Simulated assay, not measured.
Amino acid sequence: MRARVLGPAVAVGVIVGVAVWFFGASPWWAVALALVGAAAIALWRAMPGLEEPIWPKREPETGPGARDDVHVLGWAVADLRGHVQLRALDRVRAVARDRLAQRGLDLDAESDRAAIESLLGTRAYRTLHSNVSSMPSQSALLACLDALDRVKELA
């Protein structure tokens, strides 16, 4: 590691110092600029690269039977603008399909729309049928999850 950092730093320092002195600077300026050049190269070479992590990646500590679905879903819920990401919406849609199928309803069937809206509410129905160009907000997704919880309690 030292040779990888100090070798190029000393070489650049000597080259800069001699070049500055050769072109007419005083010896003190040549030494000062040589030290600055050597320090800059030493810092640049000592920085960790992408393949050298600053600290090791910590694996989550999970006990037997533990799952991290809630943690992963929490990070997948919102984008930078506060809209729900497609991955999270797809998971909520899967839950909705299961809950509605228990009542004989199909989320994607237009014939079941009125029954689903009366069961979940219009806002939850619109949230479940959002598309990529108009993703719902976090509050709309939470309202949809609350409506799905009420459906589960009624069963």
Rank of each mutant, 00 (worst) to 15 (best):
residue 47 M to C: 09
residue 57 K to W: 05
residue 61 E to M: 12
residue 37 G to P: 03
residue 57 K to I: 13
residue 26 S to C: 05
residue 26 S to L: 10
residue 48 P to E: 04
residue 59 E to A: 11
residue 31 V to P: 00
residue 64 P to N: 08
residue 37 G to Y: 04
residue 26 S to W: 00
residue 66 A to S: 13
residue 47 M to F: 11
residue 12 V to S: 06
residue 53 P to V: 04
residue 33 L to M: 14
residue 36 V to D: 01
residue 29 W to H: 14
residue 67 R to T: 13
residue 49 G to W: 11
residue 18 V to A: 13
residue 35 L to G: 07
residue 65 G to L: 15
residue 65 G to N: 12
residue 20 V to E: 01
residue 24 G to N: 07
residue 18 V to M: 11
residue 64 P to Y: 13
residue 66 A to V: 06
residue 22 F to P: 01
residue 6 L to K: 10
residue 52 E to N: 03
residue 11 A to T: 12
residue 56 P to W: 05
residue 30 A to D: 07
residue 36 V to W: 03
residue 68 D to P: 06
residue 21 W to E: 10
residue 34 A to T: 08
residue 39 A to E: 03
residue 14 V to I: 11
residue 22 F to E: 09
residue 22 F to I: 10
residue 40 A to N: 04
residue 54 I to N: 01
residue 43 L to A: 12
residue 54 I to K: 05
residue 14 V to E: 08
residue 23 F to Y: 12
residue 24 G to S: 10
residue 8 P to W: 02
residue 27 P to V: 07
residue 22 F to H: 14
residue 57 K to Q: 13
residue 52 E to I: 05
residue 10 V to E: 08
residue 46 A to N: 03
residue 24 G to R: 02
residue 24 G to L: 07
residue 56 P to A: 12
residue 13 G to W: 00
residue 67 R to L: 15
residue 24 G to C: 06
residue 21 W to A: 10
residue 17 G to T: 02
residue 60 P to C: 00
residue 38 A to P: 04
residue 59 E to H: 07
residue 9 A to Y: 00
residue 22 F to V: 11
residue 46 A to G: 07
residue 15 I to D: 14
residue 14 V to A: 02
residue 27 P to A: 02
residue 35 L to C: 07
residue 39 A to C: 02
residue 50 L to I: 15
residue 61 E to G: 11
residue 56 P to N: 06
residue 27 P to R: 04
residue 55 W to N: 14
residue 44 W to N: 12
residue 56 P to G: 12
residue 36 V to Y: 09
residue 68 D to Y: 10
residue 61 E to F: 13
residue 23 F to D: 08
residue 16 V to S: 03
residue 45 R to W: 06
residue 41 I to P: 00
residue 41 I to E: 05
residue 11 A to V: 09
residue 38 A to K: 01
residue 8 P to C: 09
residue 7 G to A: 14
residue 40 A to S: 07
